[in-house]
Structures are given as structure tokens and as C-alpha cells.
Design a protein around this nucleic acid. Structure first.
Lengths: 198, 198
DNA sequence: GAACAATACGAACGATCGTTCGTGTTGTCA
DNA sequence: TGACAACACGAACGATCGTTCGTATTGTTC
């Protein structure tokens, strides 16, 4: 890795951390320069514009998500066990990735849901690939006979997204530490509706 | 209503609209002054600080929510019918309230979930009262015999929040127009789990 | 080590940020 | 209508925003 690539990676590290704390809109050249100990212009030179920096930060966060959630889940037996692993890894991936202030992309999804542009596009791309990955895992659960054959995969993905959103809301905004228990109970009930006919 | 109260209300109208478009962090004195046709200092004088303006805007949005969701639902027969009405009014309250860019408080919930201060406090207060209202409606459904007696009210509220969050995510970020159908199906399934023993 | 590109810097730009202040212009009530 | 408070304004402040540019200082390659 060349010197430039190294600094760029270090900048994005700091950017993802800051986005986790205060959202992608808080990513300013100045604050990021101070955080990394660089000059504003030196940092700026690694990205053509602030918007490109935000896009790169979204993609960096998305990459971390994949590393922390999908890659380890692939080592688990396909079908329901892998789906459970995905769910479990998903709920606490930020903490395991050194982002104690919540999921940055989850925040971006709300921040940019009404602001067209490259940042929004990057966020949408992440969630599309996330939903595709989930749908694939559900499909495997059907193949393995863990879920019934005529199961509505898309509805399952919708519900699973809802559970995770509700978990974030309850734990981060309301600071209720029973959030993870509520989420697990919801997930188990959701899985139960998918059980094959006895 | 005195002149001052009138302008203040007009400012908050514009503020809620803008927050719906781009979040509460986008509420700057300058942009709001331009939107209302006032001078920066003239507008500023109605609030001691930008933060107080943000708090007032959150409270104004919360008030609108109550008017558009809870008040009309009170006219519906208590129990399951009222709960359904709450859900339906909730899903499209922003459009009926002239906020075509999504729920401002929903955005604030994510924007300020990690930023302590008066704004966050106002957001939390809104969601607490919202959850209390939901729990009360579920309690009435139990009283009316529509739900079984030993039903877990808190879990129901958690799941209902999740459905609405997922609805926002799917319709606003992914722009899928089947979001409302997915949400309704999830809600019906949730209601079914609450049915009293036959 | 020489040569050249890659990288980082400091200074400066116009714009906008929240906020303060002094001064008019209104609305309100006796 | 006169008097006083309420209201709105324009100008200015220091700070920060994203961005540009010229110039050192580095890494990299022959």
C-alpha cells in the first residue's frame, strides 16, 4: 500500500468513526483534518470534493459491515443457522467494529432519504446489496427445508429490517437495555411463521 | 394571537417543513429567514438561540403528529378498531399534514440519538408519549376482549414501531411503493398473534 | 544518488454560520 | 391620540465552511 493509500484509509477510518457519532452531514473537512492531525488542504487533496469524501466514507462503512456481518456468517451452516448468525452479527456489529455510537449507515439512510445525489445512491446501493444477501440466506433456508417452500421471502426481509430498525431506535434513542431481548423475541416469532407444515 | 405569536408560528411552520425535507440539523437561521422573508436578526429574536429554535420545531412537529394521528383516532371505537385507525393515520400523517418529504421527528430520532441536549430530550419526550399512547390503546383492546388478557403490551409496541420504521425505510429510501402493503400485512400478522384463545 | 511524481502544507478566497447591538418601525392599550 | 412596549431591521463580529493555488517536502523508481 502506497503512502497515499495509507493516509486515505486512515482518513476514512476517522470519517466512519465520526459518522457513527454524529452522522455523515457532520463530516467536514476541518473537523476531519483536526481529528487526523492533517492540514485541511492536505486532507482535501485525497478527495476531489466533500461530497466524494462522504461517498467514500459510506462505502468504507458498507465494507466494514460486510466484513463484520456477512463474511463470518458464511462460515455457519447454510439455512436457518446462518440466518440466525446474520441476525446476531447484525445487532452488535458496530460494537465489534469499534463504533460505539451506532451504525453510521443506518443514520445515513434517514439523513439522505430525501436528498438526491451520489451519497444517497451509495447508501441505497448498500441496502440493496444487504437485502439481496438476506433474501439469499432466506432462500437457502427454504432449500434446506427449514422454511416452507411457498414462503414470502420479500415480506420476511421487510419484517427483519423492521426488527433491526426498532432495535436501534429502542437501544440508541430510548436507551432501553431490553432492546436486544425484544428484538430476539420478535425474530423468533418471525422465524416461527416460516416453519414448514408439520 | 398577538403579532409576535403569529410570526413565531409562521417561522415554526417553515421550520417543520424544512426539517421534513432535510432534517433538524439543516435548520439554520439564515435559510429560515430567507424562507419566511424575514431578516436573520428579526427571526433570531423569537428564540434565544438556534438550539431553542430546534427544540421549538421538534415540539411543533410533535404537536402536529398528535393532531393528525391521536386526535382523530380517539373518535374511533376503542379497542382493535382504534388501534387500526392509529396505525393507518400514522402511516400517512405527513402527507395529510402537508409534509411530503417524510416524518421530521422520525429523522430527528436518528439524528439526535447520540447527541445529548435539549433537542434530544424533546425527541425522546415525543416518542415516550407516543409509546404511552400506543400502550394505552393496546390495553383498551385487551379490556374490550379483542386481545387476550395475558398479552405482552410492550412487545407489541416494539413490533409496531418496527413496522413503521421499516415502512419509512422502504418507501422513502428505497422508493418502493409496495411498502404500505408490506406494512399492512405485517400489522395484520401482529394483530393475529394477539387474538384471544378461541 | 538523480529525477520526477506523489504528497502535504500554509495562506487566502468568498460564503455562510450563530450571535450581538443600536436603531427605527410598528402594534397595543390607556 | 399619546405613550410605551413589542417587534423587526441592518450592520457587523469572529468562526467555520468548502475550495484553490503555489510551494515545499517527501516517496518511489531508474
Amino acid at each position: 500500500m502506497s503512502k497515499g493509500e495509507e493516509t486515505r484509509a486512515a482518513i476514512l477510518d476517522a470519517a466512519v468513526m465520526q459518522a457513527s457519532e454524529a452522522g455523515f452531514e457532520s463530516l467536514t473537512i476541518g473537523s476531519l483534518a483536526e481529528r487526523t492531525g492533517m492540514s485541511k488542504s492536505g486532507l482535501f487533496a485525497h478527495f476531489g470534493s466533500r461530497e466524494e469524501l462522504q461517498v467514500a466514507a459510506v462505502e468504507a462503512a458498507a465494507g466494514r459491515f460486510t466484513e463484520a456481518v456477512f463474511l463470518p456468517a458464511l462460515k455457519v451452516r447454510r439455512g436457518l443457522p446462518r440466518l440466525r448468525a446474520l441476525f446476531d452479527y447484525w445487532l452488535d456489529w458496530t460494537q465489534r467494529s469499534g463504533l460505539p455510537h451506532g451504525c453510521p449507515i443506518h443514520a445515513a439512510a434517514v439523513e439522505f432519504d430525501d436528498r438526491p445525489g451520489p451519497v444517497r445512491d451509495a447508501v441505497v446501493a448498500h441496502f440493496r446489496s444487504l437485502e439481496e444477501g438476506l433474501a439469499r440466506a432466506v432462500g437457502l433456508a427454504i432449500e434446506q427445508g427449514h422454511f416452507r417452500a411457498n414462503f414470502d421471502v420479500d415480506q420476511f426481509v421487510f419484517d427483519m429490517m423492521g426488527i433491526v430498525h426498532a432495535y436501534h431506535y429502542r437501544s440508541r434513542l430510548l436507551r432501553r437495555n431490553d432492546a436486544i431481548l425484544r428484538a430476539r423475541e420478535s425474530f423468533e416469532r418471525l422465524v416461527a411463521t416460516a416453519a414448514p407444515a408439520a
